[in-house]
């Protein structure tokens, strides 16, 4: 019987790596679940300014986005440099906002409508004129809870 006895020498047994795939799969599932694929193709350049007093948007399902900025690279040739509004996947005029707001509201439950946040993503170089027009349209559409999308920074410089 001593033939089969394991040698209890100073050789340590190798650590089993059998559970490694399990660990990695766990991480994998975590990232798969948390990943949000970008839902719209941006047609405008949006480099938002930075601010320090940021509040996070918690419920992504209750956020609708408005983008304002210059048309993207290739579109610049045909559309010029004038800042434009993008709603969902297409360019829009400010007169379209009213209808778009209604559509966005209809997409949600009635109870959730007052909790919708309207996130406005505006390029830092845009002039306030167009932003004001959009704000005015939102007021008309009774979409009052807005969020000026910004990046986070430690300090504001002059």
């Amino acid at each position: 019987m001593s033939k089969f006895k394991k040698k209890t020498g100073n050789r340590q047994p190798a650590i089993s790596t059998a559970s490694l795939p399990d660990i990695v799969f766990m991480l994998l599932f975590f990232f798969m679940v948390t990943t949000v694929m970008r839902e719209v193709d941006l047609l405008v350049e949006v480099a938002t300014p930075s601010a320090t007093e940021i509040t996070k948007l918690e419920n992504k399902a209750l956020v609708s986005y408005i983008y304002i900025g210059k048309p993207m690279g290739a579109l610049k040739k045909t559309l010029g440099e004038e800042p434009r509004i993008q709603l969902n996947d297409a360019f829009a005029n400010k007169s379209d906002i009213l209808q778009w707001v209604e559509m966005e509201k209809n997409r949600r439950d009635e109870a959730e409508i007052p909790r919708i946040t309207w996130s406005i993503k505006v390029d830092a170089e845009t002039k306030m004129g167009i932003v004001t027009d959009v704000k005015q349209e939102l007021r008309k559409a009774n979409a009052l809870k807005i969020n000026y999308s910004t990046m986070e920074t430690d300090k504001i410089v002059d």
């Binding site: 996070k56 992504k60 009052l144 807005i146």
Partner: peptide, 8 residues
């Protein structure tokens, strides 16, 4: 996603 939240 964050920013300055305001009420119009």
């Amino acid at each position: 996603d964050g920013g300055l939240t305001r009420k119009l």
